[in-house]
Simulated assay, not measured.
Amino acid sequence: MSTVREIMHAGADCVRTEETAADAARMMARLGVGALPICGKDDRIKGVITDRDIVVKVVAEGRDAGTFPAGDLNQQEAVTIGADDSTDEAMRVMSERRIRRLPVIDGQRLVGMVTVADLATSVPEPRVGELVEALSRS
Results as ranks from 00 to 15, higher is better:
E133I: 00
V116A: 09
M91C: 06
L73G: 00
V116T: 13
C39K: 03
R63I: 13
P69D: 07
G129A: 05
V58C: 06
S136W: 08
G32E: 10
M1V: 13
V48E: 12
V33C: 12
L36H: 04
P124T: 01
K57V: 06
V93W: 08
D106T: 07
L119I: 02
E125L: 04
R92E: 10
R98E: 14
K41D: 15
D13A: 11
I7N: 11
L31C: 07
T20V: 14
V123M: 06
V79E: 06
R98S: 13
A65M: 13
R16W: 08
R137T: 13
Q108R: 11
E130S: 00
K46E: 15
A83C: 05
A10L: 10
A90I: 00
D64W: 00
A10H: 10
H9Y: 12
R30I: 07
A35T: 00
V128S: 09
G32P: 14
R137E: 15
E19C: 09
T115P: 01
V93D: 02
S95M: 04
A90G: 00
G112V: 05
E61V: 09
S2Q: 15
S2H: 14
E89Q: 12
D13S: 11
Q76M: 07
C14N: 03
A29H: 10
M28E: 10
K57D: 02
D84K: 03
V55Y: 01
T17W: 12
R5N: 12
R5E: 15
A29F: 09
R100W: 12
I7D: 07
A65T: 13
T121P: 01
V59E: 02
V93F: 11
V55D: 00
A90M: 00
D84E: 12
A70I: 08
M113I: 14
E125H: 00
S95W: 04
V33H: 09
V114R: 02
Q75W: 04
S95P: 04
